[in-house]
C-alpha cells in the first residue's frame, strides 16, 4: 500500500509538528515493573498526560496487545505510539501526525489503524515502521457523526466501527481498502455472529449473541454484579468462542451530592452457550483522565486493562491473576 495524498493528513501533520517542537516529555525511559502482571509507565517520563483546568484531563486513550505479547500504547498527548516487547520494555516509538487520535487497533502483525473521531474525523493506517499508509473518512453510510463511534474492532474480514453501542459498520475490507459499507447490529465476532450488550436499567447487564444475517438472537444471558452494574466497559469474543465482558459496578450514596461509595470492575468469561466460566474483580476503575479503551482482549484470550494512578499508566494482565 502507498500513502494517498490527502489534504486532511497535511492539516493534522501540521498540527502535531507544532506540538512536537518542544516535546512535553523527556526521552522515553524503561518501565518501572515490579510485578509480572503489571507494567507501570511513569507519567511525564514515558507517557504524556493533559491535566485539565477548565478542560478534560487525558492520559493514553487506548492500547492493543500484539501477537507476540507486547503492547502498543497510544501516547497521543506526545503524538506517538509506544511499542513494547512482551516484558513491557519499550522497543520503539512511532510518531503520529496529531495529538487527537483516540483509538488504536492492530489489523495484522505489521499494520495498525488509528482513529481520530473528534478533530480530523478520519482513520489512519500506519505500518509498525511508522509509515502512514492510508487515511479514510469515518463519516459516511452508517456513521452520521464520527464522535458517536463507540469502538473500533479489527477482524479478519476488515475493520469495523461500532456506533452508539447499537450497530457496527465495516469501513475497511480484508485488504484494508475502503469498501461498500456493511452494517450489522451489535459488534461483529467470528462465524458470522454478533455480540450485543445492554444494561437493563435495573442494575443488571444482558449479553446476547446472534447471527448477523438473520438478526436473530441465538442466546442471551442476564449478568448480575456484586454492586449495581453501571456500564459495560468491554465486550468481545476470543478465538475459542468464549465471550468476555467487563462490567463497571458501582454503589452511590442516595443523598446529595450522591458520591460513589464503592466501585470495581468485574471481568466475566462466558462459554459459547453463555454459561459463566469465571469472574475476576479489579479495583482499578476509570479516573478523571479520559480514556476510550480501558480493557482489551489479547490475542491469546487474556484480558488486559490500562489503568491510571498517581504514578503513571498501569498495563495489567488479568490473565495472570486477580489485579
Amino acid at each position: 500500500m502507498r500513502l494517498r495524498p490527502n489534504a486532511v493528513l497535511t492539516v493534522i501533520l501540521a498540527s502535531c509538528t507544532l506540538s512536537l517542537v518542544a516535546p512535553r516529555t523527556a526521552e522515553a525511559e524503561p518501565i518501572v515493573s515490579h510485578d509480572p502482571m503489571t507494567w507501570v509507565f511513569p507519567w511525564d517520563k514515558t507517557v504524556g498526560r493533559i491535566i485539565g483546568q477548565e478542560a478534560d484531563s487525558e492520559g493514553p486513550k487506548s492500547f492493543v496487545i500484539k501477537p507476540d505479547g507486547g503492547a502498543l500504547i497510544l501516547d497521543q498527548v506526545n503524538c506517538r505510539v509506544l511499542d513494547t516487547d512482551p516484558k513491557g520494555n519499550l522497543i520503539q516509538t512511532l510518531a503520529l501526525p496529531a495529538p487527537t487520535f483516540d483509538d488504536i487497533e492492530l489489523v495484522n502483525e505489521n499494520v495498525m489503524v488509528l482513529a481520530d473521531r473528534l478533530v480530523s474525523k478520519t482513520l489512519l493506517l500506519m505500518d509498525l515502521q511508522g509509515h502512514p499508509l492510508q487515511q479514510i473518512e469515518i463519516q459516511g453510510r452508517g456513521i452520521t457523526h464520527s464522535g458517536l463511534v463507540t469502538a473500533m474492532i479489527a477482524r479478519t474480514d476488515g475493520v469495523w466501527l461500532e456506533v452508539e453501542h447499537r450497530h457496527s459498520v465495516k469501513v475497511l475490507d480484508r485488504a484494508l481498502q475502503p469498501c461498500e459499507r456493511q452494517i450489522i447490529t451489535g459488534r461483529p465476532v467470528a462465524n458470522g455472529w454478533n455480540l450485543q450488550g445492554k444494561l437493563d436499567g435495573r442494575g443488571e447487564a444482558i449479553v446476547s449473541i446472534g447471527r448477523r444475517i438473520h438478526r436473530e438472537t441465538m442466546r442471551s444471558v442476564s449478568l448480575k454484579g456484586q454492586l449495581p452494574i453501571r456500564r459495560i466497559v468491554w465486550l468481545d469474543m476470543d478465538a475459542k468462542g468464549q465471550v468476555h465482558v467487563v462490567l463497571h459496578e458501582a454503589q452511590f450514596a442516595t443523598e446529595s451530592p450522591y458520591p460513589v461509595q464503592k466501585e470495581q470492575y468485574a471481568w466475566v468469561v462466558l462459554d459459547e452457550s453463555l454459561q459463566e466460566i469465571s469472574r475476576t474483580i479489579s479495583p482499578w476503575v476509570l479516573t478523571l483522565y479520559d480514556q476510550r479503551v480501558e480493557c482489551r482482549l489479547g490475542p491469546d484470550g487474556r484480558m488486559w486493562q490500562m489503568a491510571f494512578d498517581t504514578n503513571g499508566v498501569r498495563l495489567i494482565d488479568w490473565g495472570r491473576g486477580t489485579p
Binding site: S15, S19, I50, G52, A55, D56, E58, P99, T100, R117, L118, V119, H145, G147, L148, V149, T150, E164, H165, R166, Q196, G197, K198, L199, R230, R231, I232, L235, H248, L286, D290
Partner: peptide, 24 residues
Amino acid sequence: DSQGNHEVVEAKGCNYGIVRQSRS
C-alpha cells in the same frame, strides 16, 4: 445508551475545541 455512555457536547481542551461525542 445501552451500555452506559451519554452523547455530550464539551469544550474538551486545547487540541480538540468544542466537540460532540459519545463518552463515559
